[in-house]
Computed example of a mutant assay.
Amino acid sequence: MPDVRANGIDLRYETVGDPDDPALLLIMGLGAQLIDWPAEFVSALASRGFHVVLFDNRDAGLSTSFDELGVPDVRAILGGDPSTVPYLLGDLAADAAGLLKELGIARAHVVGASMGGMIAQQLTIDHPDLVASLCSIMSTTGDRTVGRPTPEAAAALMRPRAESREEILAGAVATSRIIGSPGYPASDEWLRQRAAAKLDRSFRPEGTQRQYAAILASPDRTAGLRSVSVPTLVIHGEADPLIDVSGGRATADAVPGAELLVIPGMGHDLPQALHATVVDAIAANAARA
């Protein structure tokens, strides 16, 4: 996995598939790494004729960290004081744009999940020339009246920082169990294996807090989404407890001509049983371009 210098920082990225195929950029969510995209899901996209590009966002995985900026004061941010916010979602979108440009990709189909969906939306708004089609998965518009978490999911997101390896893995499994798909439950063993793989690759809880601050401080994208003209698909789990399905509905309502796919039993993850459904929908949306 190489690094590329983009937007003034180093981004760790990986590609899968034939470089001669149309590019498809995958953008992951809060505190997530490029390995959070299931390998089978990425391979399925490549088999559908896409050159898949996936990367670690800033402050996650093996991309540039911003530890020198310290930990943001989330309570103050929620109270209206953004002075400790290190960067905004627009900066993460600029990172993605810089990555595409450095890789020599003129246009890409863009797919984002959760915070990655927010970044994908902002990328399409700010850099429309780089985006061939947009797919926003389990995300929202930035309108604080939609896409709100359940109290249990919010508490899982804000759980105290774990210190030992065992506490970190147990907390990751517990969180996945709370926000995951009730209709497609994963085993504790599988969840623990994935959490261990992430922990062994990188563990940056303060970076996650800075990314969360970016979400909180970034403006509502609804007005900007009304200017999006590329084929757009919005996918959301009907049972998503972390970002309520109202966030997906609002996203689809904001983008002219957007298609909305609400999946019963799906929560805030990409269960293997739904890979074919999601990949087919992404491919169909890209074909509209």
Rank of each mutant, 00 (worst) to 15 (best):
A93D: 02
I125M: 01
Y212G: 12
A252K: 11
A120Q: 11
D67T: 14
S246E: 01
R148D: 08
G147V: 06
G70P: 14
G147E: 08
D200N: 08
F203E: 13
L34S: 03
D143N: 15
A213M: 05
T232M: 07
G257Q: 07
F66K: 06
D18R: 00
G80W: 07
A46S: 06
E102A: 10
V279H: 08
F66Y: 10
A97P: 06
L199Y: 15
T84N: 11
G248N: 06
A186I: 01
I179K: 05
A250I: 07
E166I: 08
S218C: 01
S246R: 13
R204Q: 15
G247Y: 03
Y87P: 02
G104R: 02
L261A: 11
E259H: 10
L100M: 05
A32V: 01
H275Q: 03
L191F: 04
I77P: 07
A273W: 00
V228K: 09
E206C: 13
F203A: 02
L261C: 03
V52C: 00
V131W: 10
A287D: 04
G8L: 05
G61R: 04
P149A: 03
W190D: 11
I105W: 01
T208S: 13
L199N: 04
D188K: 07
D280I: 04
C135H: 04
V255F: 09
A223Y: 04
I27N: 10
A156N: 09
V173K: 00
G207K: 15
D244Q: 10
L54R: 14
S227W: 00
A239R: 13
T208Q: 14
H236A: 10
H275K: 08
H127C: 07
M138P: 00
G265M: 02
S136Q: 09
T145Y: 05
V71M: 12
E68H: 15
G49Q: 11
R249K: 13
V262C: 07
Q272R: 15
L26F: 04
P185I: 09
M118T: 04
G207P: 11
G104D: 02
T145Q: 09
A258W: 09
I77V: 14
R75W: 03
G247Q: 03
R194K: 14
E206K: 13
E206S: 12
T222I: 09
N7I: 02
S83C: 05
P38V: 06
Y87A: 06
D126P: 06
S139R: 11
L274A: 10
M138S: 14
A250H: 12
D20M: 00
H51M: 03
D56C: 09
S133Y: 09
G142S: 07
A197Q: 15
Y212F: 15
T251L: 06
D220H: 11
G147R: 09
Q272M: 07
A217R: 04
A287W: 00
G247M: 03
K101E: 13
T150A: 07
T175D: 05
